[in-house]
């Protein structure tokens, strides 16, 4: 089967003013199947987030192309949506207005976008908080809004840039489980960037381990654990073997810091 998302070798170099040029990605290549949950782990600054921004259509690579559903990516599109690490909620908008952002920019009328926004707010468990402003919410609640907002345009692909990194450990566990439920129900393709080996192993069908900068694919690890995955599974020996495998691939990259 043809992969849903594919890239030729992507290279991207940043040239900041008065600084040396930094090659964030070098010949990075990826293939994603429709409905697949794939995580990317790698050392800090290896270009994981940069790659997400290329896929989102906000950054143009110096070399290489990305294709989604057979169409070349030239900018943002409705079939992709991102959940941002620092939430990225508009602080002067209520929860409801934040969730409605995507449909609003698409030019959807209030009548058509409101019921869907409400449905998504219910889905992420924020019923009753529609009129709240972001500063009145906890970190977990803010990221629920971020997730609902990303789902509001009904994208095929969810890009998640360390979405739970700013949350406390318990909230994180809870959000992971809920994300899996939503993914299972809505059948999105998910590309999930994280620093947490455990998170990557628990959520994904495949885990891509990246090298240190300039980032390339070091190894792709398939997670053959049955779904639905419960919390108990995270304590099983098979799960620990997978974590160890990811770790062994990653640790050389961490040691080999310049």
């Amino acid at each position: 089967m043809e992969p849903y998302i594919r890239s030729t070798d992507i290279t991207l170099t940043f040239t900041p003013k008065n600084r040396d040029a930094v090659t964030a990605l070098k010949d990075f290549r990826i293939e994603l199947n429709s409905g697949e949950f794939v995580s990317i782990v790698g050392p800090s600054g290896c270009g994981k987030s940069t790659f997400l921004n290329v896929l989102l259509g906000l950054l143009k690579p110096d070399k290489g192309e990305m294709e989604i559903g057979g169409k070349k990516i030239t900018g943002p599109g409705v079939e992709r949506a991102m959940v941002f690490q620092e939430f990225g909620l508009l602080p002067w908008r209520t929860v409801l207005a934040n969730v409605e952002l995507g449909p609003e920019l698409k030019g959807e009328s209030v009548a058509s976008r409101r019921p869907r926004a409400q449905e998504l707010i219910n889905l992420v468990g924020l019923t009753g908080f529609e009129g709240h402003f972001p500063h009145e919410l906890s970190g977990g609640m803010k990221q629920r809004v971020g997730l609902a907002r990303a789902l509001a345009t009904d994208p095929e692909v969810l890009l998640m840039d360390e979405p739970f990194a700013a949350l406390d450990a318990q909230t994180r566990d809870l959000m992971q489980a809920e994300l899996l439920q939503i993914w299972d129900k809505h059948k999105k393709t998910v590309l999930f960037v994280t620093h947490s080996i455990e998170e990557a192993a628990y959520l994904s069908d495949r885990v891509i381990v990246m090298t240190k900068r300039p980032g390339r694919t070091k190894r792709i690890i398939k997670i053959n654990l049955p779904r639905p995955r419960g919390y108990e599974m995270r304590l099983s020996p098979e799960f620990n073997d997978i974590k160890l495998d990811i770790w062994n691939n990653l640790k050389d990259e961490l040691n080999a810091r310049e």
Binding site: G57, L58, G77, A81, M82, G88, L90, K106, T153
Partner: peptide, 11 residues
């Protein structure tokens, strides 16, 4: 970040 968010929705 906010600029990127709004851009990503095609603004």
């Amino acid at each position: 970040v906010l600029v990127n968010v709004v851009r990503s929705f095609g603004a």
